[in-house]
Design a protein around this nucleic acid. Structure first.
Lengths: 149, 149
DNA sequence: TTGCTCCTCACGTCACGTGAGGTGGC
DNA sequence: TTGCTCCTCACGTCACGTGAGGTGGC
């Protein structure tokens, strides 16, 4: 059976390169509980990842880089992402419609929260851009005045 | 003579509170050369700051928080801010027009560089926001489908 | 069998946080 | 004189970086 959802054929070096971090980062995130390391792995054996892990990691890294969240804050925001990840596994599985509805309804406030954070960051960035624009105009005006005198 | 530019009447705790960091951060930035601590201060005596330092610190912190720059990167970007700070001191002083022009022309590419970084960050944030919007729409559509079946 | 990547300690680093013990200014 | 804030070490922490020494899979 080729279970597309549970592939887990990527080694740590491969997933690290694909998402643009080092293997140390991946292991550290696992330590901190951000990556649900396959619980059947025996200590010392190789870690294996799937496409779902790639998606999840990219999401986490974007929240980290664009919003400057700490790993602890990522854990909170990710806890229901967790649900959405299991969702991906369970979705095409044997869950009932009621269960699906519950999962979707749990995911909505999380995405909403992320959107709020992004919007807030966009606003402060816009202010910053405006101030820099203004500063630039002032400098150019001053340059004009000085070079024509 | 009440030299408004060289006031330096703020103590480290006051400036720290005004810009929203701890005194440790201020001292650390001084260690790393980001804050030109008054060079006439004798070891052990109190540090004193002026309004120009407040402005400078706020700029640095915004670059740090909004763009995620390291202190080393801040040093680079700030080196000519340095010039703009001395500018503030020298401007109304005894500098010639030619010197003023030189300072203004040095400041322009720096502000331009900052604007580029901000614009780039704005673009990636927009992409992120779009994806989150799309995700939200998908979730809501799915919820609608599930609750009406 | 030979590389290559992986593994687990474990110490180093960056950007501060957090006391410990002591001195200075309104 | 009494608080309060300041000072300088100096060790702790978060999020990793960077080897050291050893084992596993194509």
């Amino acid at each position: 059976v080729t279970a597309a959802a549970g592939e887990r054929s990527l080694r740590i070096g491969e997933i690290a390169e694909r998402v643009g971090v080092t293997t140390r980062t991946i292991r550290y995130y696992e330590e901190r509980g951000l990556l649900g390391a396959a619980p059947d792995r025996v200590k010392g054996s190789h870690r294996l990842y799937g496409e779902a892990d790639v998606v999840r990691l990219l999401e986490l890294l974007r929240l980290r880089d664009l919003l400057g969240l700490t790993l602890e804050e990522l854990v909170e925001l990710a806890e229901a992402e967790e649900a959405r990840a299991t969702l991906r596994g369970k979705w095409e599985g044997s869950s009932t419609d009621a269960e699906r509805l519950r999962i979707v309804e749990a995911a909505i406030p999380l995405v909403r929260r992320q959107l709020e954070l992004v919007r807030a960051r966009q606003r402060t960035l816009s202010e910053f851009a405006d101030e820099l624009d203004e500063k630039m105009r002032t400098l150019k005006r001053r340059r004009r005045e000085l070079s024509s005198s």
